[in-house]
Amino acid sequence: EADPRLIESLSQMLSMGFSDEGGWLTRLLQTKNYDIGAALDTIQY
């Protein structure tokens, strides 16, 4: 079963217009401990 923190973070990022095609966003959020800010910083640079 998916981590509730992942579901919450992923749904927030999907609502911002990101896609999780191929699961890349799920993996990114997992490596950033479900921190949306850290994930966005990684995507920006």
Rank of each mutant, 00 (worst) to 15 (best):
F18G: 00
A2C: 10
A39Q: 01
G17Q: 01
L14I: 11
M13P: 00
S11F: 13
E21R: 07
M13Y: 02
F18N: 00
G17W: 03
G22A: 07
W24N: 03
D35W: 05
R5I: 09
K32L: 13
D20L: 03
L6Y: 09
L25V: 06
L10P: 00
T26H: 04
Q30M: 11
R5K: 10
F18D: 01
A39M: 04
R5Y: 07
Q30V: 15
K32Q: 10
T31H: 08
D3K: 04
S15N: 12
T42C: 11
E1M: 11
S15R: 11
S9Q: 06
E8Y: 12
D3M: 05
G37H: 10
Y34P: 00
W24Q: 05
S9P: 05
T42W: 15
A39H: 01
Q12R: 08
I36R: 02
I43H: 02
I43K: 02
A38C: 06
Y45I: 15
S11M: 10
D3N: 11
S19N: 15
T42N: 10
M13D: 00
I7N: 10
I36S: 03
W24V: 06
G37V: 13
L29C: 03
S15Y: 09
G23W: 05
P4G: 10
Q12C: 12
Y34K: 03
G23K: 06
G37L: 14
L25T: 02
Q30K: 13
P4W: 12
P4Y: 13
D3Q: 04
Q44N: 15
R27L: 14
I7S: 11
W24E: 06
Y34H: 05
S11Y: 12
A2W: 14
E21T: 07
M16G: 02
A39P: 02
S19T: 14
A2F: 13
L10I: 09
N33E: 10
S11E: 14
D3T: 05
N33G: 12
D35R: 03
L28P: 02
D41L: 15
I7Q: 15
I7M: 10
L14E: 10
M13C: 05
S11P: 01
G22D: 14
L10Q: 00
E1W: 11
M13N: 00
G37E: 13
M16N: 03
Y34F: 10
D41T: 11
Y34D: 00
E8R: 08
G22K: 08
G37F: 14
E21A: 10
I7P: 05
T42H: 15
A38P: 03
A38V: 09
S19C: 10
G22R: 08
T26M: 05
D35K: 04
Y34A: 04
G23F: 08
L10C: 03
R5G: 05
M16F: 08
T42A: 15
F18R: 00
Y45D: 07
E8V: 12
I36W: 08
L14G: 05
T31W: 09
T42Y: 15
R27M: 10
S11H: 08
D3F: 05
T26D: 04
G37D: 14
L29F: 02
R5P: 05
T42I: 12
R5S: 07
G23A: 04
D3Y: 05
